[in-house]
Design a protein around this nucleic acid. Structure first.
Lengths: 144, 144
DNA sequence: TCTGAAATTGACAGTCATTTTCATTTAGCC
DNA sequence: GGCTAAATGAAAATGACTGTCAATTTCAGA
């Protein structure tokens, strides 16, 4: 699943031919994400591509991953050490159960949590809210 | 992302004479935290102390804040930009509603969320879990 | 009160993820 | 083929945080 060749904003202004171009670098990053099934850092993806032969500049990997996450095509989370890690995910809103050891990830949903977050925010007069909810632990394999 | 740390104040090891000493720098940092009621970065606290006259080395502020959070005396969260911010909090487990603009913070509790996180983890065979749940938004003042 | 070992401090250099700069290459439209 | 905005990437810059280590301070015991 997941193809993602980075088609962002739908209709653009008629006059300005602002367009997101399709390049081999972007294709390579998207492919890497599709192959790597767990959360990976920019550096790891860059390394992966290099080892694979499809070398892409580190700067470009950074930019591409940010664009992909901004477009909602991949999920980003801040690891406990503060580093950003990316992963292709289902489109619906969800959270993650991430193994601290091997990075294995399980997508989880919690409609009740979303509702709770919304109501708590509203009750306190907060607007433009977003929330982060990730669970870190050791998966069954890494537990022992 | 780092949630509320759960380590309690350490009982000093009986045999070793390891002791945490009381210094004016630590007192100053603790005082600053008590005065600044919202989440602040290490740099901000360092700056605050300097302006106040109780200048403390930046390195020391870093170390002290980390020690305090490791001891469970203050809460740490990773801001959306990845920077760690600290704040004195109630001792019970809770989460935060943080204003992206001014940093104003409201502590919130969600027993149901805790239970949900635990059951989801268990259902997937995860152990040693910890979770992060923070809500960022604009408080009523900053909304307009 | 004095003393010395261990704890602490802080200036400074180092690390490392991420960003900026900018000159050089492309993709995609004519 | 030619053109131009978009994209790339090497190198330098940024910024948070950590490591080093000589100098300073705390505090338990004499």
């Amino acid at each position: 699943m997941v193809t993602t060749v980075m088609v962002r904003s739908a209709k653009v202004h008629p006059m300005s031919s602002l367009g997101v171009r399709s390049t081999k670098q972007r294709t390579a990053v998207a492919a890497a994400l599709a192959e790597l099934d767990d959360f990976r850092s920019t550096q790891e993806i860059h390394e992966y591509l290099k080892d694979r032969g499809d070398s892409v500049g580190l700067t470009t990997v950074y930019r591409t991953l940010q664009a992909l996450s901004a477009a909602g095509d991949v999920d980003v989370i801040l690891r406990e050490d503060g580093e950003s890690v990316y992963r292709v995910c289902s489109t619906s809103h969800h959270h993650h159960l991430v193994c601290r050891q091997c990075g294995h990830t399980v997508e989880v949903e919690g409609p009740a949590v979303e509702r709770w977050a919304d109501s708590v925010s509203a009750a306190n007069g907060f607007t433009s809210v977003s929330h982060t909810l990730e669970i870190f632990g050791l998966c069954s394999n890494c537990s022992h």
